[in-house]
Design a protein around this nucleic acid. Structure first.
Lengths: 219, 219
DNA sequence: TGACTTTTTATACGTACGTACAGATAGTTT
DNA sequence: AAACTATCTGTACGTACGTATAAAAAGTCA
């Protein structure tokens, strides 16, 4: 396992290894996002980090540890954004299915569209996870609780809708959302035109597609 | 490269190596579908085929050759089904956007739902391709021409729709379609209920979602 | 049957991988 | 300053990888 999680000093300084640790995790995040778990070697991550091989092991533990650490590092922030958006809807008291879809999708598009290349890399990494059932047992506890909260909120709005249909539609929504981030190349090649530069600019069409699809699927 | 493509004798018999070749390609198809290109070794494929290591190289060429051969072997059949469905619509003369979505999606669901585990494996393999831009340059010429035909047909029906929006929606449709095949695990976990056993049984909800989404996205 | 081709076996080569660890270095605490 | 801990370097081990190939076996055909 990795040696430590976070050990700041009693005053404001960061622990010596912390900056290195972040470099390693950032590099791993970029590498895993770019080509997936199997195609990346720890030596590549070391080179990308600008550290030596042993340091990656020191801070990241085994390759699988490192992978999970990279995921876990960001998931709280994403979940928090989604929960806040849901909570905001709940306090208004009046909201629609479309609003729920918006609240689920937009935080992800937002982080994917931030200038920060690390968040963009994380978004691409998440897109990889969803298309492979191999990862699901390892990541379900990270993302499913929030998804279930949204599902419950949908059922509150449409008590007569079949739960499995709603769950299916939610996964379709997620796939659509992820595919926007993972790959806008194909839409550009098919249409012959360059598209929007950031995922967030796809928000309108994505939102229309998902909420329109949801509406018809449960009618 | 692989040594040969297909060399039947003058009479009806198949060439000696052909049965072995099919065994190798089938095994490779299953392996690549299950874990992706990078995580599979040629030795695994050999074991799965029940042949020795050298035979995989003899019939499959390099690992990348083998991968592309596996894809190319099936793509004509899938494209043919889609083109026939589109042609059937065209001969009727009257069809809607929903019909076009149906004609694009259903052939894929059909092959994924056949009893044949090889077709099912191929369908899962295709689902892997779409989520990774790395593969796109290698596979675009296999799938995009047909996609472009459908896109043109959509534009004929809705001449005022923005082509890039339509292309985007088509890729979202594809992602949704693929995610049904790649993973029904999550919807089951989220809903707590077991879902349909084959992708084809998701046809109605998938069709509703995609055509409903398409309709709203271009309105 | 005997020459020929296709297919299969068995083995080897060079490289890269994940992991471990002893020792050096640097920062911290007493 | 001395003892201690955290971090980093360098290297090595065993394994598995993709690929190539010589030789054997099996099948084909004159």
């Amino acid at each position: 396992m990795a040696q430590k999680a976070d050990k700041p000093h009693s005053d404001g300084r960061v622990a010596r290894g912390e900056v290195t640790r972040v470099k390693v995790l950032d590099a791993a995040e970029r590498c895993f996002a770019a080509t997936g778990f199997d195609a990346v070697s720890i030596r590549q991550i070391a080179a990308e980090s600008g550290v030596t091989l042993g340091v990656v092991g020191f801070h990241g533990g085994s390759k699988e540890d490192l992978f999970l650490t990279v995921l876990a590092r960001r998931v709280d922030a994403l979940n928090k954004l989604r929960r806040e958006a849901l909570q905001a809807l709940r306090t208004t008291g009046r909201y629609t299915l479309d609003d729920l879809v918006d609240a689920y999708i937009t935080p992800y598009l937002t982080i994917a569209s931030r200038g920060d290349p690390q968040w963009r890399a994380y978004a691409q990494l998440v897109a990889r996870l969803a298309s492979d059932d191999r990862y699901y047992p390892a990541v379900r506890e990270l993302y499913d609780p929030v998804a279930r909260e949204f599902l419950d909120a949908m059922i509150e709005l449409k008590p007569n809708a079949d739960r499995h249909v709603l769950a299916t539609v939610l996964t379709l929504t997620v796939s659509s959302m992820l595919s926007i981030v993972a790959s806008s190349v194909r839409a550009e090649a098919l249409s012959g035109k360059p598209g929007p530069a950031t995922p967030l600019e796809y928000r309108n069409v994505l939102l229309a597609f998902c909420s329109g699809g949801l509406a018809r699927a449960i009618e």
